[in-house]
């Protein structure tokens, strides 16, 4: 402000300041545009779920649901789709995702400890295998696993889906958790070791508490992967009572036009847990992904 009162003297600095201000406006303006582009489709999903059909099926642009209604949410929760309330599908998805996480967390913690705390023969081959299996498309596994699951009598059972999802998420789980284990200074364990703690006590009392945040982040990543998984759920589940959310959503696209209010309400319900988890572990997940990848 003071510079503005004495323009004659301070002209050069003045233009520099204006330029800085303009730059800031341009940056913030771009940020707002990016924010709107990223958020609008999500907002549109949620707001369509709260609109009445009159406001949904129109060529007008209705930015806010002025006819705010819970009818679609009520409908999918009461009557649901394919004969079951949407609760059942949410529950199935939760069972599959939590089952995957429970098994995967233990297995990946053991393997991650092995590769980042020990040097042993075959370690390199194991790490390379981890990399390669992550690239394999699900379609290559789909057909043989479908036949195996059928042979084992796990067809149409949530347990079959859990088993498959453990396999799908484990390589990345180990890969990501490995960096978290390696980040814990080894000297801490060695100190406990010298104080006479047993190997198990050292692991459980020293390493585990320090790796726990990384384990949570890795588990959430596995949870989201299993929660979102479509193709195996399509193939391994034929009875509607065993559908997970991604499969159940397909059944809204009927022959006689699509019930967009209901499908947007259901999609919103499916998205909420993932968004919550994402916001919880956002920072750690990125560091895990990138560090795991870059330092691979």
């Amino acid at each position: 402000m003071t510079t503005l009162t004495s323009p004659q003297v301070r002209r050069p600095r003045d233009t520099a300041r204006t330029r800085k201000k303009l730059r800031k406006i341009a940056l913030n303006g771009t940020a707002v545009v990016v924010f709107v582009i990223a958020m609008f489709p999500v907002y549109w999903m949620v707001s369509t779920g709260f609109k009445t059909n009159d406001q949904i099926f129109t060529t007008e642009f209705i930015p806010f649901p002025t006819s705010f209604t819970f009818e679609h949410f009520d409908r999918v929760l009461d009557q649901g789709v394919a004969g079951n309330s949407i609760w059942l599908y949410l529950r199935n998805s939760a069972i599959v995702a939590l089952g995957t996480v429970a098994v995967g967390a233990v297995f990946s913690l053991l393997a991650a400890t092995a590769v980042s705390r020990f040097r042993f023969k075959g370690r390199t081959s194991f790490l390379i295998t981890l990399l390669i299996v992550q690239m394999v498309p699900a379609e290559a596994l789909l057909i043989p696993l479908f036949l195996s699951v059928k042979r084992l009598g796990l067809y149409d059972q949530l347990l079959g889906l859990i088993v498959v999802n453990v396999g799908l998420t484990l390589p990345f789980g180990i890969w990501m958790l490995r960096t978290f284990v390696a980040a814990v200074p080894k000297s801490l364990e060695e100190a406990a070791w010298i104080d006479g703690a047993s190997r198990f006590t050292t692991f459980w009392k020293v390493l585990f508490p320090l790796v726990a945040p990384g384990l949570v982040a890795t588990s959430i990543f596995s949870f989201i992967t299993a929660w979102n998984e479509l193709i195996f759920a399509l193939v391994l589940m034929s009875d509607p009572s065993g559908y997970t959310m991604p499969v159940a959503l397909q059944y809204f696209f009927g022959q006689r036009g699509t019930d967009w209010g209901a499908i947007m309400a259901s999609s919103t319900l499916m998205t909420i847990p993932v968004v919550v988890f994402f916001l919880l572990v956002q920072r750690r997940m990125v560091s895990g992904l990138v560090a795991g990848a870059v330092k691979g």
């Binding site: 990016v34 924010f35 990223a38 958020m39 489709p41 999500v42 999903m45 989201i224 929660w227 979102n228 479509l230 959310m245 991604p246 959503l249 397909q250 999609s267 499916m270 998205t271 993932v274 968004v275 988890f277 994402f278 916001l279 956002q282």
Partner: peptide
Amino acid sequence: VGIMFAWAVPPVA
């Protein structure tokens, strides 16, 4: 946080 929403939406959704 804004772009995180776009990232978090499940592929089917």
